[in-house]
Amino acid sequence: MLNIWFGDMPDAIYDTSTYFKHTYRDQWITDPLSVEMIRDVDQSEVIGENLIQSPVLGAISPIQLSGGVKTLILISKVRDQVFNASKCGDNCAKWLLKIAETRKVVVNLRHLMDFGDGEFKIRVMNKKKIAHCMRELVLLAGEYV
């Protein structure tokens, strides 16, 4: 399940791009989930571990991916850190839920991300309560962001 701490969280990794730059492993990029996320969020195709084809920027390296995708990859691969998911736009929301389908995922959000009109299960850690839709999430988390 996706667990979110809303608002300031001093121990969370705030600058996810710098953390990604210095910690990512080549095989993360060609992982099928990463390939899907890069295709969906950045509209770019993974050619190999060190090469991604962007429709706007041309051939780019993994560190030139968007901040949102880099943060998603970190969340999916690094389990002993909490990352600032406010680097992710609303187009990353479904991927946060997907990563958290099979295990407990903890992230920090400093804004209210739009998780869409559907139903979901998100634990608001500040309140120790579960939201099942955006209306519930806004009511639980609004005071913290």
């Binding site: 969020v41 509209q43 770019s44 706007v56 920027l57 968007s66 901040g67 995708v69």
Partner: peptide, 11 residues
């Protein structure tokens, strides 16, 4: 400036 990821803010 806000918006979706991958729109070119960091660029």
């Amino acid at each position: 400036v806000q918006g979706n990821s991958g729109t070119g803010k960091t660029k």
